[in-house]
Nucleic acid binder design. Sequence first.
RNA 1: GCCCCUGUAGCUCAGUGGACAGAGCACCGGUCUUCUAAACCGUUGGUCGCAGGUUCGAGUCCUGCCAGGGGCGCCA
Length: 574
Amino acid sequence: MKQLNKELEQQISLALRRAQQAGHLPDFEIPVIPVLPPKRDDQGDLAYPAMGLAKLARKNPLEIANLIAAELGGLAFLERVEVAPPGFINFSLCDDYLRAQVGQIIREGERCFQLDIGVGKRAQVEFVSANPSGPITIGHTRNAVVGDAMARLLEAAGYDVQREYYYNNAGNQMIVLGKSLMLRYLQQLGEDVTLPADHYQGAYLIEIAAELVKQRGEALKDENWETFKGIVESRMFDWIRRSLAAIDITHDRFYNETSLFESGAIWRVLDEMRANDHIYEAAHWEGADEAEIADVTSKGYQPATWFRSTTFGDEKDRVMVKSDGAPTYTLPDIAYHRDKLGRGFDLAINVLGTDHFSQAQVVQYGLQAMGLDPAPIRVIFIQMVRAVRWNDELGEYEAVKQSKRAGDFDSLDDLVEMTSPDAVRYHMLARSPNSQLDFDVDQVVKQTNDNPVYYIQNAYVRCAGIFREADERGLVDDDADLSLLGSDELRFIRKVMELGNVIEQAVTNGEPQKIAFFAHELAAVFHPIYDKVRVLHSEVPPDVAKARLRFYRAAGVVFHRLLRLMGMTAPERM
RNA sequence: GCCCCUGUAGCUCAGUGGACAGAGCACCGGUCUUCUAAACCGUUGGUCGCAGGUUCGAGUCCUGCCAGGGGCGCCA
């Protein structure tokens, strides 16, 4: 399906070129000014502001707009081209073209509005990437929803997409986790041991320990923490996969940070950076001021291995290998991204919490230090998300406490249990990733028109209801005469025609929330039409009923497509 | 010390440098003998935080300020 705004941008460029060649306009490089849907209905379906050319052309914008309009020539999909002050060109799509799209959408089905901008290209989305030390939290959930939606949108844009999960099962945290489970297990056996405050306090470890006692009895009594680490890691990953699967999210590949240690990749990275003279050994970084040096001295640090990241614009140099000889997480992170670049993705999107902001920057500097171009890597930062509830007494929203008490929660599982997978997906998506999100749990649970989840799904349900009834009555629409469609139906198709552009914008700007807003807008155009434009009504003539049924088939295809792009279900009934 | 986010209607939020700033909710009043009313129709509602600047044009870009939230600096 063509993207009409792109087509018009091209045609306008050609028209401008012709006007220049004819001497109506001076010679200048033609800028790309986007053709967009205007704000008001009486301004056509798409508009081009020629005001942006006034300075270049040294002419008044209205005149330029007229020149372009004159040079445009007949475009089959246009009904009208109007010039409006102060210099807009307003384009109106012609009805026959819109009617033809009904058939086109039905023919293309799930691939309708599939773009070609990513065809032949490979993209990767790395998301979630939580270490297997506990359940998927609300924060991880937002990351998961945004990452998976991006992956789906990239697929819709034509990319071949891989979903990857990067995790670390080495490191101190996992050791502490293993020890924590060991202690919980011993407690279950009745031993008098206490869990230190810096160990994992989560109730889930008690549950796993209790299960272990049930399954294995005292058999693990003399095992060391490593055994328990192995057990807890595999349990945690089973849990994580199950939680994500419940909201229809799966990864193609799990990439283990530890493998970068085992293969020696991290040391090769360090060597390369050192060979390029970006590495040095020192007790403090080269630009440290007196206060910093005093601080480091008081901590008694031995010399560490530093990356001179300030060369690339960093505010300070970064430790690669700590004074105790262990690498910081930055070094394997750089090695991982080098490996990623080496796998030849045209686009590699990282979905990261904002606490990784500096980290992501240092990784890019690290890649540059090895002479690599980090351009294919793009980061989508996820701001904090809180679960909140309205507190009537205080008259304000209040964060839901992250305790184990009934009704409070802090995991994806609890969130799904309290609401639904579809509600979680929609509400986690429908906000700019880079804005903080308050997830109002009471609002999300509501099955009323407060809730866009049901508003959008109901549009699909209503289509499905018509199809069921039409089937029963034996109404066939294959041979429908689409010229019988009225202005209401065409208004819906006009709105639908924006979808390609919405997908493109979501993909190129890393703004998956756009699809959620569009779905809601489209449903808002749909519902009044559903009320008004009946199919199976005694007063509707049979040929009109056929045409309308055909129209609702197209609408159903589009809503199904939208819901799947958001990872939501398209129920036949509600 | 440095960085990020937010501030638009009573509330939750849209708004790609363009035309008269928009939805939903809430409030009030209507609509089911016709494909499910989780819907529809109508009314009300604005100092786009403040002040400068850039621009033919600023809610949008720049600078400064005010208010709120969050993060980072040999843990990952």
